[in-house]
């Protein structure tokens, strides 16, 4: 076991997978050379594995995605980095129409074994274009998988599993967690399943489901609320599409009181889909209306209004207390 940050765990995962599989390549804006990406996620990779496998791309996201698809067809496992999740939008057509549909359109003859890595989320005063959560744009596209690690352990294990996948994985990394999250993780090789949510803490009064920094708020609030005799089941959604219905339903039924948290705007969000699953399949176990705590209906997020936009730790704790008392 060695202590690593979330960012180091991602870097470690790529080093290990590059060493394991010579077909793995990574590219994107500023990922190559000594820089190793604007956040340093790919630092050291170029030195270790060469410019042929670790290289910079032009400023054109559609091209980044298209190259990844082509490399996949040629037998590579491409890691395509979008510098910010806000920048991914020009690549939507390549990702949805080509990558996500490849296996289906070719009746299984061809696949798109790609990891689209991208940092998302607010809390780093990045302002608009560097703070949004764009995962919901892709949720609901058959053939595509969206995952996000919210622990250091998962950062390594989930990325390794994504790289080994034969189908495209949209891999969202919360940039606020890059350096703020530290934990001891195993030095050896391990993977985390791409289709499973995870119960991080058991409880029997309320169930909170979240991911990213909201999950950290929930874990902290759950600890604080123990003093008020409120016992919280905390679920890391982890797999944003398709959702892990089994884990979601079990956790929802366990307490009958569910709070879903997203830092994205609530409308058409990932947590909307979670709420729908619970409404359809757990009605008779519900003891309170399913609660959704999310960002306001406004573009996220202005540099000046970042603190106002983001759901705060206090709001999370208040919502959890209120649900427990309901």
């Amino acid at each position: 076991m060695t202590e690593h940050t979330y960012l180091e765990a991602l870097n470690l995962a790529m080093h290990e997978e590059f060493a394991r599989d010579p077909g793995v390549v990574v590219f994107g804006e500023d990922v190559g050379g000594d820089k190793g990406g604007v956040f340093g996620a790919t630092k050291g990779l170029a030195a270790a594995f060469g410019d042929q496998r670790v290289f910079n791309s032009p400023l054109g996201e559609s091209g980044i995605a298209g190259l990844a698809i082509g490399l996949g067809l040629m037998g590579h496992h491409a890691i395509a980095e979008f510098q910010f999740a806000d920048y991914i939008l020009p690549a939507v057509n390549q990702i949805m129409s080509e990558a996500a549909r490849m296996r289906y359109r070719t009746a299984g003859d061809w696949t798109a074994p790609i990891v689209f890595r991208t940092p998302y989320g607010g809390g780093v005063h990045g302002g608009f274009y560097h703070s949004q959560t764009t995962d919901k744009v892709f949720a609901g596209q058959p053939g595509l998988r969206i995952v996000t690690p919210s622990t250091v352990y998962d950062a390594k294990g989930l990325l390794k599993a994504a790289i080994r996948s034969e189908d495209p994985v949209l891999f969202y990394e919360h940039k606020r967690l890059y350096r703020s999250l530290k934990a001891d993780i195993p030095d050896e090789d391990y993977v985390v399943p791409l289709d499973k949510a995870q119960v991080l803490q058991q409880g029997d009064d309320i169930t909170v489901m979240a991911y990213g920094t909201m999950l950290q708020h929930a874990l902290n609030a759950a600890k604080a609320l123990q003093a008020e005799d409120i016992s919280t089941e905390v679920v890391d959604l982890r797999t944003l599409y398709p959702l892990d219905q089994e884990t979601i339903l079990a956790a929802a039924k366990k307490t009958g009181k569910v709070l879903l948290i997203s830092e994205d705007t609530k409308e058409a969000s990932i947590i909307n889909n979670v709420a729908a699953i619970i409404a359809e399949q757990a009605l008779f176990d519900l003891d309170a209306p399913v609660q959704q705590l999310a960002g306001p209906l406004a573009p996220g997020m202005s540099y000046a209004l970042e603190d106002e936009f983001l759901v705060s730790a206090e709001q999370v704790q208040a919502a959890m207390r209120e649900l427990a008392q309901f």
Partner: peptide, 8 residues
């Protein structure tokens, strides 16, 4: 306002 969860 909108950051408030919907009240039961």
């Amino acid at each position: 306002q909108s950051n408030e969860p919907e009240k039961p």
